[in-house]
Design a protein around this nucleic acid. Sequence first.
DNA 1: TGACTTGATGTCAACAAGACGATTACCCGC
DNA 2: GCGGGTAATCGTCTTGTTGACATCAAGTCA
Lengths: 234, 234
Amino acid sequence: MSDRPTDFRLAIDLAILTIRDGRLAVLLIERGKPPFEGRAALPGGFVRDGEDLDGTAVRELSEETGLDGRALHLEQVRTYAAPGRDPRGAVASVAYLAIAPDLPVPVAGTDAARARWEPIDHERLGDGWLAFDHDTILRDALERARAKLEYAPLATAFCGETFTIGELRAVYEAVWQVDLDPRNFHRKVTGVSGFVVPTGERRNPPTGRPAALYRRGDATMLHPAMLRPGTARR
Amino acid sequence: MSDRPTDFRLAIDLAILTIRDGRLAVLLIERGKPPFEGRAALPGGFVRDGEDLDGTAVRELSEETGLDGRALHLEQVRTYAAPGRDPRGAVASVAYLAIAPDLPVPVAGTDAARARWEPIDHERLGDGWLAFDHDTILRDALERARAKLEYAPLATAFCGETFTIGELRAVYEAVWQVDLDPRNFHRKVTGVSGFVVPTGERRNPPTGRPAALYRRGDATMLHPAMLRPGTARR
DNA sequence: TGACTTGATGTCAACAAGACGATTACCCGC
DNA sequence: GCGGGTAATCGTCTTGTTGACATCAAGTCA
């Protein structure tokens, strides 16, 4: 190990999550050039002169996927800089978690042609599913999302402007990979102050009773929290 | 803004917390050279060739304070890279949170002469107390510590090998800046499985009844969690 | 010995959570 | 139009957790 500081290229990588067909999906791109050509990877790119990290994340989100980062939930997760993590040399990567509603498809954009939603394959994740150390990055981002569903109104970021309690429950079930009791969930969500507010409208589902529509409330923290079940207490 | 990627120098900064005289304190150094010469700052330094971030954090912890990072709780918090945050140019900084028991004093080391424990001044924090953007970094690290006390056995990292329930309570009170009911706290802590285990020993305080000594348990998460009070529920 | 201080255990009421019964309001096919 | 299927919504019961607070225990000190 040298005694001198190293110069790094600084990149950001995006773990963009959504729910599609009731399953948790991540936006992946197919790498068009080496290293890892043809492999699936998280979208991302280098920080430019005069840009801050959030700015880079918003720009890459738009360039690579056509999504508008200012409308999405976007938060920094952590930074990866292990020697050798990028074959091109000293590249540090700042991971971001983004949450998007179920959009029809990655909107066409500059490089968006290579982008696609992919259901998260928990089997292959951690086993070389993605290029670089993106398995690790995605796993950490997922854990952040799972944890934050408990105490922040993050789940509404997966939904459209208005949503039903059932849709919100589907978010929790997809992200946590558990089944939740619809009745208890309904009681809990509507009991948390400022989480959701009824719009007065209703929506007719393909089957079953019409559901009341809700809009995201102004709470930034959930009280009481929506605790994950199964997190066994002895 | 240029279209090209920038090269960054990559640094880590350490927010090292402890409890002294029942108050939360942070380890600061006095800067010996520009920029911000003579000002108080968080200890830190540049990532070297072949080093990973955790390694840099451990090395700087030892060099600047004489503390052994492998024995302390140490975790990455987040990364700061806003343009202009460092007058020397493009420097990205990865913030780390470290938790230390109340050690007599920053042990003498290479640069440790300039290091000192300083009670956290919540008034001046955020108002240019520290050099660079270290006010922000410290604030974010503090918030991480506060939040993590709820669901992780982090509080024991502030204590020595063995500790009393009262000492543990003092940690929560200092970090959260609240008063806790000793009786309810005792019940809660001893009710969380794997948080603390009794050693069978007792310790005689300067005054009052002797307290049972405990050791950190093997839990990595707390169930049920030690929720912050005052986080009002309606 | 009694005053004082801190630790440890207990009680009670309010509240939150899991399990699950029952009712409501749509669609569909006959 | 009617019954079956499905999902939303409301209610009940039991158990566990929380906050407020009384009480007792076991040391030090004057």
